[in-house]
Design a binder for these strands. Structure first.
Lengths: 246, 246
DNA sequence: TCTCGCTTTTTGGTATGACCAAACTTATAA
DNA sequence: TTATAAGTTTGGTCATACCAAAAAGCGAGA
């Protein structure tokens, strides 16, 4: 309707400021409600401009924003993909900023400390109220960790997997998401670390101690074992290759 | 310069995909390094297009993206403001997504549980290693909380302030940021709750109990007091106005 | 001299229309 | 049936134009 309204926006921008905001809000809605199917490609821009009666400029801006919010995933020349948000998405959306923060003084240390803090509470919680199947998963993760002692790459994977089980014990999706965050943000600083079967063994022993304490329902022991484990790892990393300004 | 290269982009997009990405990266750099002064307005779009030898489209897209990443704060018709990122910024950047997640089944409950989880660990930590000045701040916050019992609005403020002190004890900027997150995400569900001097008194008593336990260096007691406090509050909110699908 | 209100001048928000190159489709030849 | 070539979207950009609200000047009055 009306092909001649120029700056005088059409029917979309009913209220204030940016028309893009309207489009953003609308698309956001359609995504979360499922009107736009998850993992499906977004309609073509030229379609959207018709649907929203807006210019490509506006549509494009909306897409860019939604993309950086993690609600849609857009590779350079491809059709954007709809991504229904979850806690992991939320975390990765801040990835960029966090990475900057980490590069500042004490950034990595702060993040690592927070991890220690969380996991301390996690193991206490585990010791206090882990279910049978939680223990089972823990035992299994521990076993896999042990059998990978000689293979440093595999060990790293089983190591994080073991810790991952801890994050899943509270049955709260927020924690696994946090774990993902730690993995992706801290990993770069870990991967550079020289691994060896000797150190792997040490770490495995730590895991074992944590596990034992949990099984014995001893939160204090579990916490202590966890702290020793993570503090030692930190010291090792710190001494290994970074001066002290992590 | 060359005023006649059309689709054949100029000198910016040296490599792949989107020219906007280049601009984004560059501006991001300038922001974190301080080349673009913090809290100062961003250069005008028309300047940026000159500086980056890019079209307005691309500049605009970059700005939109940086904005939703929290590196720039842009009100509708005003000049965007440069915001050097901090942990709070990072958190608020995910605010939108989180709000969606909260509206889903159990969303609020999960977030609240995570808060309880964190604060349990926080009070333990406080009981274990709060410094004299930490205790001082706590005492002060408690006093202000007490003197606001009769004024529900003020009480709410002093309440969160008291908890805020807890988040600051570990001297890790990540925790205060998390607290900000909880405040802004959980607040909407709290503000609707009917407050009364009676309930305020109850809550104050809880704070007092927590404080006492911390002063007495009794982490278990502190944790217990905290749990009772928060669980009670949750129950109250839950019973008050929401069925049970928070 | 300082302030308030009125012009200009900027500057953000949008709309159009074009064009290119890479994706995607479809028709065609092997 | 499959490999391939031709044709058609569709995302990425640029250039230009216009509007309205901000911001910056400015000049009269306190």
């Amino acid at each position: 309707m009306s092909g001649s309204d120029h700056g005088t926006h059409g029917s979309v921008a009913v209220q204030s400021g940016r028309a893009a905001d309207t489009v953003i809000a609308e698309l956001e809605q359609q995504i979360v409600t499922g009107a736009l199917e998850n993992n499906a490609p977004l309609p073509a821009e030229r379609n959207l401009m018709e649907q929203f009666n807006a210019s490509r400029t506006v549509i494009r801006e909306a897409i860019a924003t939604l993309s950086s919010r993690g609600l849609i995933e857009s590779k350079p020349r491809y059709r954007p993909i709809v991504r229904k948000p979850d806690y992991v998405t939320a975390l990765t959306a801040v990835g960029g900023i966090v990475r900057h923060l980490l590069s500042e003084h004490g950034g990595v240390k702060n993040l690592y400390d927070s991890r220690v803090f969380i996991e301390r509470a996690l193991v206490r919680e585990a010791a206090l109220s882990a279910q049978k199947d939680d223990i089972g998963l823990l035992r299994q993760a521990l076993a896999e960790n042990e059998s990978a002692i000689s293979d440093s790459d595999a060990f790293y994977a089983t190591d994080t997997a073991f810790h991952g089980v801890l994050y899943r014990i509270p049955k709260n999706p927020i924690f696994p998401a946090i774990h993902e965050g730690y993995k992706s943000w801290l990993a770069p600083h870990w991967e550079k670390m020289l691994r060896s079967p000797e150190r792997n063994l040490v770490n495995f022993k730590s895991h074992e101690a944590i596990f034992t304490a949990i099984v014995e329902r001893d939160p204090d022991a579990a916490e202590e074992a966890l702290v020793n484990h993570l503090k030692a790892a930190w010291e090792y990393v710190r001494v290994t290759f970074d001066t002290d300004q992590l």
